[in-house]
Computed example of a mutant assay.
Amino acid sequence: MKRLLICDLDNTLYDWVGYFVEAFYAMADEVVRITGCDREELLDDFRDVHRQHHDAEHPFAVLETKTIKRLFPGKNSGEIAKIIDPAMHAFNSTRKRRLALYPTVRSTLDQLREHNIRLVAHTESKLYAVVDRLTRLDLTPYFSHIYCRERSASIHPDGTSSSEYLSQFPMRKVFELSHHQRKPNQDVLLEICEREGAHPHDAAYVGDSIVRDMMMAKRAEVTAIWAKYGTRHDRDAYDRLVRVSHWTPDDVARERLLSREAADVKPDFTLEHTFGEVLSVIAVKQVN
């Protein structure tokens, strides 16, 4: 039986693409309705802001777009935020409706915890987005530690500081990784195992990406469990994500190189349909 299970989050425990794309475009379309701006120019601006911050989820990115700055000269971010508040509401309401755990995730996490399997989260999403999703989905109690990318240099337009925003979250659990500590760098995974007091052979990693998650796990000699169910995205949704993504030409080139390197990578186990299949992989007997 494995003693440490390291879990990717986005598209492994919930459908990140499905929720985020719908919420983002609901917001963008509402901005267009409010301001009358050109939609394609606005989307170009979003892409530029996302690239600047290396993050498609940069907080309040709309306030940094050239379009919004041009339309509201002389107004500060708080004033602009009030004008386009319906757009923020559109994002939040869509997120509330669309963000949900995949089937069997919670019951599976419960069983893993009951069998004293140490659970750790590892994601390339940045801190604020991770805190938001883990809190909304009530996942924080399951993880002994959470490894994520370092927080964005951003504050709420009403002046709320990061310390206020994070005050209700158990930050003692969090380790923020730099932009350079990226998947599929096996050293990051080996450091996680060392910090958690587990030999790599006693650990397993579950994630949806062959290129990033499985190749990293195989290189670290950690059991590689592929969440294949998390790769089944609507093509239109994925194309809409790429339209505003933070991926630069260099990122695309890096991804192509990694894809070639991962061509022969084969996971140790594959979860075809649900996260619950991980129970048999790490030898946890299911309870009826």
Rank of each mutant, 00 (worst) to 15 (best):
M1S: 15
I6Q: 05
C7I: 05
D8N: 06
D8L: 08
D10P: 01
Y14F: 09
E22A: 11
A23M: 04
D29S: 12
L43R: 14
R47T: 05
H50E: 06
Q52L: 12
H54S: 13
H58N: 02
P59C: 01
P59V: 02
T67H: 08
G74S: 13
K75V: 07
N76K: 15
K96T: 07
V105C: 09
Q111K: 14
Q111Y: 01
N116L: 07
R118M: 06
R118Y: 00
A121E: 09
V130W: 02
V131A: 12
T140E: 07
Y142F: 15
S144G: 07
Y147P: 03
S152D: 13
S154E: 13
G159T: 00
T160I: 00
S161W: 00
Y165C: 00
P170W: 06
P170L: 04
V174H: 06
S178W: 02
R182M: 10
N185P: 00
V188P: 01
L189I: 07
R195W: 02
E196S: 09
H199I: 05
H199K: 15
V206S: 04
M216H: 03
K218T: 11
A220S: 08
E221D: 14
I225E: 08
Y229R: 09
R232Y: 01
R232H: 04
H233D: 04
D236I: 03
Y238S: 05
D239A: 08
V252D: 12
A253R: 15
E255T: 11
A262G: 09
A263R: 15
A263E: 14
T270L: 06
L271Y: 04
G276P: 01
V281L: 09
I282L: 15
I282R: 12
